[in-house]
Design a protein around this nucleic acid. Structure first.
Lengths: 174, 174
DNA sequence: GTAAAGTATATGATATATCATATATATTCG
DNA sequence: CGAATATATATGATATATCATATACTTTAC
């Protein structure tokens, strides 16, 4: 059963949370997506960020950021001018309208998080984050494989799976 | 900082896992997405599922399932005939090719999961799932709000947050 | 200073997510 | 039976994710 597989549980939880959070934002009368709000937030904090920097901070990719920024500009939540030192870029600025929506939506966001985490202790949250970080690390700098470590179950704990890069067990196909 | 907010940690971990898992599938020479593989799997298990049932099992929605099935049919991993009892539906069947790819990809999938979870104990996985399930429940059957429960922190544990539906604190806007 | 390399952004193509709705068919109920 | 209701699927519209690549500009190396 899929629900026994951790990654489906993760997927399921984050999907439900996003659905829940977006629905509450919609219901409160805001016409902004969570992702747009998130990017707007980063622009407010560091208006001189490059798209790559925003992408890294938000765990998105540059192409998505480009399109989200485009929408934010359309909605007049962000304004652009010439960048003073780099003509490839634009100098971004959150508009008054943008600042207003950031401020107005914040209580809903905070409330969403609080409701979603109800009954979960600080320690449990820390534990969750620790484990999620470990999964992240395990999936980084690795190409999977090493089908079975020769009997050293938990040794890679601090190493983030930077083990050798043996060939995959799966049959090759086009 | 975003990394301190649990939901970004969840998002980050699952995104990285998906990226990692898909890259390994690609690298092994398969031309199928994880989502397609997942749906194909469900069809194999229960070929008579409706799209809604598949959606529920995979935590996707019916429209996505419809489009994924369309692609699976295009790729000839699934074949359809008339449904014997319900003319709104089609009788699906995983083709030989479909069965082959399911079988061939499985080792890669299992390996992906194993690598991603390296250094994480059974107990920790269970704990993770328990907490994710709690988040899921908290976000279900609830419209957020109840900005602060009047001092009964963990009482809603078994209830899935079905508390009264007070007005949101955020200012109303179009 | 110029060529090469690197960086920033935009965009096409495709896959998925989501919502709303259209269409067809089934089921229920008077 | 026939109308109302429910269900199954498809699809349009939009947002996001991802990869690849094009374009413009900057920096580096010579």
């Amino acid at each position: 059963m899929l629900s026994r597989i951790l990654f489906y549980s993760i997927d399921k939880a984050i999907k439900r949370y996003r659905q829940f959070a977006q629905a509450n934002i919609d219901r409160a009368g805001f016409s902004i997506t969570i992702d747009q709000w998130l990017v707007l937030n980063v622009i407010q904090e560091k208006p001189d960020s490059t798209q790559m920097e925003i992408a890294e901070r938000t765990f998105k990719d540059q192409a998505s950021i480009a399109r989200i920024i485009h929408l934010l500009i359309q909605q007049k939540l962000v304004a652009v001018e010439n960048h003073p030192t780099d003509r490839r870029r634009s100098q971004m600025r959150v508009t008054a309208e943008g600042n207003r929506i950031l401020e107005d939506v914040m209580p809903t966001i905070l409330n969403n998080r609080a409701v979603a985490l109800r009954g979960i202790s600080e320690e449990e949250i820390a534990q969750l984050q620790y484990l999620l970080e470990k999964i992240f690390t395990n999936c980084s700098n690795s190409k999977s494989h090493e089908t079975q470590l020769p009997n050293q179950d938990d040794l890679s704990l601090q190493m983030g799976a930077t083990a050798p890069d043996a060939a995959n067990t799966a049959t090759e196909r086009a």
